[in-house]
Computed example of a mutant assay.
Amino acid sequence: MFMFFQLHAQVLRVAIPDEDYPPYYYVLDNSLTGFSVETLYDIASDLAIQLEFQRLPWSRVVNHVETGKADLIPVFYKTPERMQQFEYSHESYLVDPIVLLCVNPCPFEFDSTLASVGDEPVATVRHFSYGSVLDEISFARVDVVESDNMLFKMLLAKRVKLIMASAHTIRHSALVQQAEDKVVMLQPALDSVEVFFAFGKQHGISAEQRQQFNQALARFKRGERYQQLLTKYQLQPR
């Protein structure tokens, strides 16, 4: 069944940003791990292929996959613009709640809408998507830094009052957890965004190979191992 993949793509090149992004990917005891990394290893084992990880600045991650220097981005939200450039996995493999994180005490009466925070600038990661719904909403968004971790540092230093981030990354940030009394996660989430794997449309592995990957992902999600990883990384729906 997987002969084509084995003959032509024994190595799947995975482009990952050089800044750790727990729980998805991060270095622990000198080894790359995380929910997305472990998921990919299970899929690679199913397909009898090897993984090659490339750690790059975010802008180069996108460029490498788009131009065929790498085959796959493991954590990607779906937007109309990106759909023109990338081929997404047929299924998402996680749902990511997008929330606001505020300095404590938070001065807002939050009602689940961005309108309730008024004109207060919302600090975000530069060139980062928060899903098609939030990307298209007009609000006082200020792209200020290159990673969530830098956003968390700015918030804890009170250089900004309000940031937007993934609830999963907030809950898995050692920096935030060590100072959890200083911040408030505003609930409910602004949106819940599906997380996909993404391939280059014009370069990289073929459509047949992407289909084999999609079949392996579907099998993985139906199996016990998927549920075990959701539990391990505390990613079950709340």
Rank of each mutant, 00 (worst) to 15 (best):
F76A: 10
F76L: 11
F76I: 09
F76P: 09
K78L: 12
K78Q: 10
T79I: 07
T79C: 12
P80I: 04
P80N: 13
E81V: 07
E81D: 04
E81C: 01
Q85E: 00
F86Y: 13
F86I: 06
F86R: 04
Y88W: 10
Y88H: 06
H90A: 15
H90W: 13
H90T: 14
H90L: 13
E91T: 10
S92K: 10
S92T: 04
S92Q: 10
Y93T: 00
L94V: 02
V95F: 11
D96Y: 04
P97F: 00
P97S: 09
V99C: 01
V99A: 06
V99P: 02
L100T: 01
L100E: 02
L100Q: 01
V103K: 15
N104I: 12
P107W: 06
F108S: 08
F110Q: 06
F110L: 02
F110V: 03
D111Y: 03
S112T: 14
T113C: 08
A115G: 05
S116E: 04
S116C: 00
G118T: 08
G118I: 01
D119P: 07
D119K: 15
D119E: 13
E120P: 11
E120S: 14
V122M: 00
V122S: 02
T124A: 15
T124G: 14
V125A: 07
R126G: 10
R126S: 14
H127V: 12
F128N: 11
F128W: 15
S129H: 11
S132D: 10
S132R: 11
S138N: 12
F139G: 03
F139C: 08
F139H: 10
A140L: 12
A140C: 15
R141I: 11
R141A: 02
V142S: 12
D143R: 12
V144Y: 09
V144P: 03
V145H: 03
E146L: 09
E146D: 13
E146C: 00
E146K: 04
N149G: 09
N149F: 04
N149T: 08
M150V: 14
L151Q: 05
L151P: 06
L151S: 06
L151M: 05
F152C: 02
F152E: 00
K153Y: 10
K153L: 11
M154R: 09
M154N: 09
M154S: 05
M154P: 00
M154Y: 05
L155T: 02
L156D: 03
K158R: 15
K158L: 06
R159L: 14
V160P: 00
V160R: 00
V160N: 05
K161M: 14
K161I: 08
L162Y: 13
L162D: 07
L162R: 10
I163N: 00
M164T: 07
M164C: 08
H168L: 03
H168N: 12
H168A: 09
H168Y: 08
I170F: 10
I170K: 07
R171E: 08
R171W: 01
R171T: 05
R171A: 06
R171L: 02
H172P: 01
S173P: 00
S173D: 04
A174K: 14
A174G: 11
L175M: 03
